[in-house]
Nucleic acid binder design. Structure first.
Length: 136
DNA sequence: GCCAACGTTGGC
DNA sequence: GCCAACGTTGGC
């Protein structure tokens, strides 16, 4: 089982849009590193949903329901998408600020590679973020 | 709205 | 194959 974090700008595609839709296709990735991560996602992997630009916080958990297949929004066969479904909205969103403030999360891609839109998380990092979401 | 970080493109 | 120029992302 792997753990991931994806970023979306809420005014384009927010967590609420995602929930309304039920199944979300993660399309439009045009970056090789992000694409490679998409291609590595396995069924039932868990994915944190982060709002970039506005909100700047992890808002929910999703999971993979369909592994990588060619991106239907382009003819270019280099790009792939995955399908996700919402699992749960976090009771307390975890802000970028809170993540930055945690010594144990210093090295996660969200901080180190802030521009990467699809990132892998270690289980530890995933658990730390969730503990903040469910703790007080 | 600015700017840093980083990926991509294209000339040589 | 290097590197400058440029575009994009995303935090502030």
């Amino acid at each position: 089982m792997n753990y991931w974090l994806v970023k979306s700008e809420p005014f384009k595609y927010s967590w609420d849009d995602f929930v309304k839709q039920g199944v979300g296709t993660w399309d439009g990735v045009r970056n090789y590193q992000a694409r490679n991560n998409l291609a590595s996602m396995k069924l039932d992997d868990l994915v944190l949903f982060y709002h970039s630009n506005e909100g700047l916080e992890v808002v929910g958990i999703a999971k993979i329901v369909k592994e990588a297949y060619p991106d239907p929004t382009t003819d270019d066969n280099r790009w792939v998408v995955v399908d996700l479904v919402p699992v749960e909205k976090l009771p307390n969103p975890v802000t970028l600020k809170a993540i930055k403030a945690d010594e144990r999360l210093k090295d996660i891609a969200l901080i180190r590679l802030s521009r990467l839109s699809v990132q892998q998380l270690k289980k530890d990092e995933f658990d730390i973020i969730l503990s903040k979401a469910y703790g007080n």
